[in-house]
C-alpha cells in the first residue's frame, strides 16, 4: 500500500468507518500475528492478541496523531498487549517446564513451525533444538524477549526496533546481546552437540 493511500485510509478510519479500517487490518494482520506469535509462542493466543490489537487500535484511532507510522503504532499496541498477557499467564502458571526438562524429555515438545530445511539425518536434532530455543526465548525476561523477537525473528533493524520500543538503538543492541548470551547459556548442551555434527 502506498503511503499516500494509507494516510487517506487512516483519515477515514478515524471517522469510525469499519470497512476502511478492515482494509488497513488486511494490510497488517499477518505481521501482527507473526509478532504476537513470536512473543507468546502459541498460535491461538497469537490469534486472540491479533484481534485485540486491531480492536484497541480501532478504539484509539482518534488518538492516533501520525507521529509514529501506523505500522509502528500497531506494533506498540500488540507488544503492550502481549506483555500484559505474558505477565498474566506467568502469574497463573506455576512451575513452568524448563529447558533442562525438555532436554531430559526430548521429543515431547509440540512443534508449531516448519523445519524442513534440514536433511533427514539431522532434522530430528534440529527439531528438538528449535523447540528448546523457542522455550528458551519464552523464558527470557520480557524486555529481552521482545527486543530479541523484533530484531532476530522479525528481522527489524536496531533503529526500527528502537522506534517501536521507544528506547535508544544502543539499548536495543545491548539487550539483543544480553539475550543471545542468556540463550547460549540455556542451550549449551544442545550447542555442543550441534557444533559436533
Amino acid at each position: 500500500m502506498r503511503p499516500e493511500e494509507e494516510r487517506q485510509l487512516i483519515e477515514l478510519a478515524r471517522l469510525g468507518d469499519v470497512e476502511v479500517f478492515m482494509r488497513l487490518t488486511r494490510e497488517y494482520e499477518h505481521q501482527i500475528f507473526q509478532l504476537t506469535f513470536h512473543l507468546t509462542g502459541n498460535r491461538e493466543d497469537a490469534a486472540d492478541l491479533t484481534q485485540e490489537t486491531f480492536l484497541q487500535a480501532f478504539r484509539a484511532m482518534k488518538k492516533f496523531r501520525g507521529e509514529a507510522s501506523f505500522h509502528t503504532w500497531l506494533y506498540r499496541i500488540a507488544i503492550n498487549l502481549s506483555l500484559n498477557f505474558l505477565k498474566k499467564s506467568r502469574r497463573e502458571k506455576n512451575g513452568q517446564e524448563s529447558v533442562e526438562e525438555i532436554e531430559e524429555n526430548r521429543g515431547g515438545a509440540q512443534l508449531e513451525y516448519n523445519f524442513s530445511q534440514d536433511s533427514p539425518e539431522d532434522s530430528s536434532l534440529s527439531a528438538e533444538f528449535v523447540a528448546s530455543l523457542k522455550k528458551a526465548i519464552d523464558e527470557l525476561p520480557p524486555a529481552y524477549r521482545v527486543t530479541f523477537s523484533l530484531v532476530v525473528l522479525e528481522e527489524m533493524s536496531h533503529k526500527e526496533a528502537a522506534g517501536v520500543l521507544g528506547c535508544s538503538e544502543k539499548t536495543v543492541s545491548w539487550r539483543v546481546h544480553e539475550a543471545r548470551k542468556m540463550l547460549k547459556k540455556k542451550l549449551q548442551s544442545f550447542l555442543t552437540l550441534k557444533q559436533e555434527v
Binding site: Q34, R43, Y113, N114, V130, L133, V152
Partner: peptide, 10 residues
Amino acid sequence: EAFKIGEIDY
C-alpha cells in the same frame, strides 16, 4: 535455528 521459528501462519 531462530529463523526457522520465524514463519508461522494459519
